[in-house]
């Protein structure tokens, strides 16, 4: 069991994260997941931690647990994220802080702690989440899209800082995928978004897993600091 590749995925209770937890267990990975609430599923080779990704103490304790049990971490997928659809003039500051905390600070904290663990074996793959809402300048998503722009910059610079430790850092930018995250976005907005993609359809979980699979392969060691948008958005 100890020889199975070890992947940590944040935000596995539902949506894309839940799919990825199942997908990587099925692929023969040992999966460690987390979210604020517990999960309604049980999987062999899956361990869940209930925590908020911005709680430094709780996150640190999880990493200590992983280090003591496994002594390494091969892959980190920073999927946990929140969005908010609102006009700038009616967006409360509290929403701004929560989005930046969860999406940017949470991603940063996990990258930092994962890198400490990955450097033990001088090997690691980190995948962060961006969104097509950033390049498409999606109105109503200013704060969310800005937080994801920050994640791209973080990805690019961490790629350089962590390269000497054998760790690659990349990002995947999904198009709209049917999850709770986009439930509050009006259909008309979604249709408009899809029409601006090179390939005008909703994204599937499989599309995202495919890009992650590419980034986390051992032979992708020369691919770092990259962001891949789906659907032909650039």
């Amino acid at each position: 069991m100890e020889n199975l590749p070890l992947v940590m995925i944040t935000g596995t209770r539902k949506g894309i994260g839940k799919y990825l937890a199942h997908y990587y267990v099925e692929k023969g990975f040992q999966v460690i997941g987390c979210s604020r609430s517990s999960v309604d599923y049980e999987l062999a080779n899956y361990q869940h931690f209930c925590l908020d990704v911005i709680n430094e103490f709780a996150v640190k304790k999880m990493f200590i647990d992983v280090r003591r049990t496994h002594g390494r971490l091969d892959v980190l997928i920073n999927n946990a994220g929140i969005a908010s659809m609102n006009h700038v003039l009616s967006t409360p500051m509290n929403t701004v802080r929560k989005i930046f905390d969860t999406n940017v600070a949470g991603t940063f904290l996990f990258c930092r702690e994962a890198a400490k663990l990955m450097q033990i074996k001088q090997y690691g793959r980190i995948v962060n989440f961006s969104t097509v809402a950033t390049p498409l300048k999606l109105e109503g998503e200013a704060v969310y899209a800005a937080s994801k722009a920050a994640i791209i910059t973080l990805t690019e610079i961490l790629a350089r800082e962590l390269a000497p430790l054998g760790i690659t850092v990349n990002a995947v930018g999904p198009t709209p995928v049917e999850t709770d995250l986009i439930r509050s976005v009006p259909q008309e907005k979604i249709d408009n978004l899809l029409s601006r993609q090179a390939i005008s359809r909703l994204g599937k979980f499989e599309d995202i897993a495919n890009v992650i699979d590419f980034f986390i392969q051992e032979k992708s060691e020369f691919v770092t600091g990259q962001n891949i948008y789906l659907g032909g958005v650039s």
Partner: peptide, 11 residues
């Protein structure tokens, strides 16, 4: 950091 955590059992 890792050794101190193991020695004192505190993050």
């Amino acid at each position: 950091e890792q050794s101190v955590e193991d020695e004192f059992d505190f993050p």
